[in-house]
């Protein structure tokens, strides 16, 4: 019965129409799109949801203009260390956080506008051998970093103007933490996934490591994207970039797993598998917002799933001008930011 319940159901005739192209922005000076995100930006008393695009050597801020067009507001040049990712900071305005490095993150910086001296600036937040970073509520950044001997899990609080206010340390697990997610429904809880496939839970207020729970050997390199607590259970949305195909659950890209934090026992709630014809290696990278997941598949297409239904609900085939390279959800609305390697970003209403 369980196997039957967990068998993924795919909609017949995946529809591209459920994604409607709203607008397109093209950075003519960029040729190496690395990441895309959205940020609230206020200028001259007008607060707007802007788009941030990153290539290896610069990060650009785009504001909406009339008729679904976008205008570049500013470009920060970041120097010799390449940008690896944009780190969204929830509930902030006029702050963009980026991670820079070569193979791993070596530096975290803030990009901002200073009204004091009417300048766009950048400031250093942290350096080190950083494995994972996440922006969490109340303008905080949590990160895991390693020295030869030990791992550190730190929180940095930022002021409204982007200054680092104070720091806090969380008790590190033995294994390297590769991803974090805040727990919706429990104010001070944070979870992380580790290099040996465990889920760890912290108390953000006290820094305590509360529990370590195993995800299962069938899903190596699981990454947590989202977590929420309901009815005494901890539900975690995991992605499985390297999961193997199995008869019972197909080729799962994302899973919702229910953990009982008291006993560390778990059960799979829903599998979201690759659409038909996309077997084998799965996806390059993806993003989760609420119950929606999006990922770039190795075929160059973008797939969108409803995680609660376990269904792939939309498929964007590779664009004739080039394969998709990035898939991100905007912070508001049901808007998908789909990026191509040449720096073109398409905004789709979902």
């Amino acid at each position: 019965d369980v196997a039957e319940q967990l068998t993924p159901v795919l909609l017949d005739g995946l529809r591209e129409e459920s994604l409607q192209l709203v607008s397109k922005l093209k950075d003519s000076s960029s040729s190496c799109a690395v990441d895309v995100s959205t940020v609230w930006w206020e200028a001259a008393g007008c607060r707007e949801l802007c788009v941030v695009t990153a290539c290896e050597s610069s990060v650009s801020l785009w504001k909406p203009l009339a008729s679904d067009h976008w205008g570049k507001v500013y470009t920060w040049q970041v120097g010799e260390i390449p940008v690896i990712q944009i780190v969204p900071l929830p509930d902030t305005c006029n702050l963009v956080c980026i991670a820079l490095g070569d193979l791993e993150i070596g530096e975290i910086r803030l990009l901002l506008y200073s009204s004091e001296n009417d300048l766009f600036k950048q400031s250093l937040v942290k350096t080190g051998n950083i494995k994972a970073v996440l922006g969490i509520k109340d303008r905080r950044l949590v990160s895991s970093s390693r020295t030869v001997q030990e791992q550190q899990v730190d929180i940095v609080s930022l002021s409204e103007t982007g200054r680092c206010k104070d720091g806090q340390t969380l008790m590190p697990p033995e294994e390297t933490v590769l991803a974090f997610a805040e727990v919706e429904g429990v104010r001070d809880a944070l979870v992380g996934t580790t290099a040996v496939n465990s889920i760890v839970i912290w108390n953000l207020k006290t820094g305590q490591l509360l529990k370590k729970m195993h995800v299962g050997y069938s899903y190596p390199a699981s990454i947590c994207h989202r977590a929420y607590s309901d009815s005494g259970l901890l539900f975690v949305v995991l992605s499985h970039p390297h999961a193997k195909e199995s008869e019972s659950c197909g080729n799962p890209a994302f899973r919702v797993v229910a953990f009982n934090p008291k006993t560390a026992r778990s059960t799979g709630v829903m599998f979201s598998s690759l659409p038909p014809g996309h077997a084998g290696r799965q996806y390059l990278e993806g993003d989760v917002k609420d119950a929606s997941a999006a990922a770039v598949l190795t075929s160059g297409a973008i797939a969108v799933w409803d995680l609660l239904l376990g269904q792939c609900t939309a498929l964007l085939p590779p664009d004739p001008e080039g394969s998709w390279a990035l898939a991100r959800w905007a912070t508001t609305n049901a808007c998908l930011l789909a990026g191509q390697q040449d720096g073109t970003v398409c905004l789709y209403q979902y």
């Binding site: 809880a189 305590q208 490591l209 529990k211 005494g232 259970l233 009982n260 934090p261 026992r265 059960t267």
Partner: peptide, 23 residues
């Protein structure tokens, strides 16, 4: 999910684990 699969469930799991865990 039933209690038999996952063991006894507590709505206050976060507070209880925080009280049990080393400071």
């Amino acid at each position: 999910c039933s209690e038999s699969d996952l063991g006894p469930i507590s709505l206050n799991w976060f507070e209880e684990l925080s009280a049990e865990a080393p400071p």
